[in-house]
C-alpha cells in the first residue's frame, strides 16, 4: 500500500485515495472535427509505461481534492506530487 502525500493534507495511506488514471489528457475542443480514431484515442488509449507515469489521484476519503503524481511503475516510488494545472516535472528516470 503506497504512502501518498496529498498536497493539501500531507502523507496518507493509499486506501484514502482513488486512482484517476493518466494525467495531462486535455479534453479536445472542436470535437466534431476529430476522426473516430482521434476521439477514441482521447477516450480509451492510455499510456502504460515501464517507468515514470504521470497520473491523477484524488484524496477521496480526505479533502476530496484532485492532484497529480509522478510514479515509477516498477518501484512504485513517488517522484513528485503536484497540483492540478501544474505542468509535469521533468524527471529523467
Amino acid at each position: 500500500m503506497l504512502l501518498i502525500s496529498c498536497p493539501h493534507c500531507g502523507p496518507r495511506a493509499e486506501i484514502e485515495f482513488a486512482y484517476g488514471h493518466e494525467a495531462h489528457i486535455a479534453r479536445p475542443t472542436d470535437q466534431e472535427k476529430l476522426t473516430d480514431a482521434e476521439w477514441a484515442d482521447y477516450l480509451f488509449m492510455r499510456k502504460n509505461p515501464k517507468g515514470v507515469h504521470y497520473e491523477r489521484w484524488v484524496h477521496a476519503r480526505g479533502c476530496r481534492r484532485w492532484f497529480n503524481v509522478a510514479r515509477h511503475t516498477v518501484t512504485h516510488e513517488i517522484l513528485a506530487v503536484y497540483r492540478m494545472g501544474d505542468p509535469p516535472p521533468a524527471l529523467d528516470r
Binding site: 482513488a18 484517476g20 479534453r27 491523477r56 484524488v58 477521496a60 476530496r64 481534492r65 484532485w66 492540478m84
Partner: peptide, 10 residues
C-alpha cells in the same frame, strides 16, 4: 465525485 472531478481537473 464525477462533478468534482470535472470541476477540479478540467
Amino acid at each position: 465525485g464525477w462533478l468534482e472531478e470535472w470541476l477540479q481537473c478540467e
